[in-house]
Amino acid sequence: MKVTNIREKIIPYLFLSPFLVFFLVFFIYPALNSFYISLTSYKGYGQAKWVGWKNYHAILHYDVFWTGIRNVLTYWVLHAGVMMIISFTMAFIVSSPKYQKLSRLKVILFLPRVIAPTVAALIFRAVFSSNGLFNTVFGVTIPWFQNDTLTKIVVAIILVWRDFGYWFVVFVAGMTSVNPEIIDASIVDGATTMQRIFRIIIPLMKNILKFALIIDGISSLRLFSIPNIIVGQPGALSPTSIGPVMNLLVQNIQQGSFGRASAVGWLLFIMISILTVIQMTAVRDTEDL
């Protein structure tokens, strides 16, 4: 009896163990190791030399890091608002009963997510080349890739194109959770569509919208492939003036400065944590109402 009891007890751990082993070996250990390395000077061979917070100090005093942060922030400002408006509008249209027949077309809006960011960047090179689709259709000659600001706008457009479908799906789910009786009551009371959006749906979906903006901010911090491929120097990274902050991490690894690279990584983590805390408190605030 005793033996079977113990056997029964370890069963769940047996189910859990393959995942935990993989996770400890390939995630937790490298994570802790990269924190240790960030406090040392290490070239990838020989002995790691303890340097304390020197790497962090160096990164925080390195203007390329701040340019990277500024670029990432620019990408976020350029795309997040526009994207959320499009996602929200589409979700509103699709989830209102008169457009029932559109709901089968929902999937089209999600399709760009299936296209890899790498491929998306390559496709959009043809859209924004000097005689590309955009310039041809609108009859203009905008030199998209000659100017940093314009290139950043192209990156923002790709981000909107690829990601809005994701938030659209999330928002549709959010809207179906809004009590239809409230909507019906407002229609009976003669509320216009605009009033319905701004007075009822947006306040009710405030938490989801905040969540979306911040999660999107976090993914902007992690931006890497699109801004690099869009300027297209293979293997090489895009120039500092448009490079995201991740470039500094990749560059340091390529140059074998693992201490610096890890420090960049953990600084990213700190910024992401701050955003997460902001998101959690923002959501909590509104829950009290």
Binding site: I28, A31, N33, S34, F258
Partner: peptide, 30 residues
């Protein structure tokens, strides 16, 4: 299953979602 540490292991795992995979790239590489 009910087992000792179920809740805590689960929440620790969820908490690690906050660590983006990019952060551990240097550690993984080494």
């Amino acid at each position: 299953y009910k087992f000792r540490g179920r809740e805590s292991i689960f929440y620790v795992l969820l908490a690690t979602l906050m660590i983006p995979s990019e952060v551990i790239i240097p550690g993984q590489y080494l």
